[in-house]
Amino acid sequence: MSLPSTEFIVIKALENGVNVIGLTRGESTKFHHSEKLDKGEIMIAQFTEHTSAIKIRGKAVVQTSHGTIDTLSEE
């Protein structure tokens, strides 16, 4: 990767079992990595040469350079 990517997101789980899945960069987007966060756990994830998209399921707060988003509760 030529440019050092500093883009990252912060995910804080608001409930147990929040899923974070990284999707591959390239022609086909596969789920290449997953992570389970329990309530209060924080993950700081970078976009890399392998990961071009990140999918989050469950109740969580997500901070990006564009602002803070929280996922909707399923209740």
Partner: peptide, 11 residues
């Protein structure tokens, strides 16, 4: 196509 038929993705 997302999990290559495994059904699960490793952490």
């Amino acid at each position: 196509p997302k999990c290559d038929g495994k059904g699960y993705i490793a952490t």
